Simulated assay, not measured.
Amino acid sequence: MPRDAYQRQLERLRADVLEMSDRVCERLERALTALETQDETLAAAVITGDHGINERYLEIEQRCIKLLALQQPVASDLRFVAASFKIITDLERIADLAVNLAEYAKRASRRRYADIDIGYIGERIVELVETAMAAYAADDAERTRDIAAEDDEIDRLCENASEFVVRDLLETELEAEIGLTPDALFDEVSRMLLTIRDLERVGDHAVNIAARTLYMVESDDELIY
Rank of each mutant, 00 (worst) to 15 (best):
M1K: 03
M1C: 07
M1R: 05
D4W: 07
R8W: 09
E11W: 00
A15L: 06
A15C: 03
E19Y: 05
M20K: 07
M20C: 04
M20L: 15
M20G: 01
S21R: 01
C25L: 08
E26Y: 04
R27C: 10
L28Q: 00
R30M: 11
R30T: 12
A31Q: 08
T33K: 12
L35G: 07
L42C: 03
V46N: 01
V46D: 00
T48R: 06
G49P: 01
D50P: 05
N54M: 08
N54F: 08
R56F: 04
L58D: 07
E59V: 14
I60F: 07
I60K: 06
Q62D: 15
Q62A: 15
R63Q: 15
C64N: 12
I65F: 14
K66L: 12
L68W: 07
L68P: 04
A69T: 15
L70R: 03
P73Y: 02
V74G: 11
V74S: 13
L78K: 03
L78R: 06
F80I: 04
V81S: 03
A82D: 05
S84N: 10
K86D: 03
K86L: 05
L91G: 02
E92I: 02
L97A: 01
A102R: 05
A102C: 06
A102V: 07
A102Y: 08
E103D: 14
E103W: 01
Y104H: 11
A105G: 08
K106I: 02
R107K: 13
R107S: 07
R110N: 13
D117P: 11
I121N: 03
G122L: 08
G122Y: 01
E123D: 09
I125S: 03
V126N: 01
L128T: 10
V129T: 14
T131W: 00
M133E: 11
M133I: 15
A135D: 06
Y136D: 00
A138K: 12
A138Y: 00
D139T: 00
R143F: 08
T144G: 01
I147P: 04
A149I: 13
A149E: 14
A149T: 11
A149R: 15
E150H: 11
E150I: 12
D151E: 14
E153V: 15
R156H: 15
A161V: 09
E163R: 15
V165R: 09
V165F: 10
R167T: 15
D168I: 01
L169M: 14
E173H: 14
E175D: 14
E175W: 11
E177D: 15
I178Y: 14
A184T: 12
V189T: 05
S190H: 00
S190W: 04
M192K: 06
L193S: 07
I196T: 03
L199R: 01
R201D: 03
V202P: 02
G203H: 09
D204N: 12
D204I: 08
H205G: 00
A206I: 10
N208P: 11
I209E: 11
I209S: 06
R212F: 14
Y215T: 04
Y215Q: 12
M216H: 01
M216Q: 08
M216I: 02
S219Y: 04
S219R: 14
D220K: 06
D220H: 05
D221Y: 08
E222R: 13
L223H: 04
I224R: 06
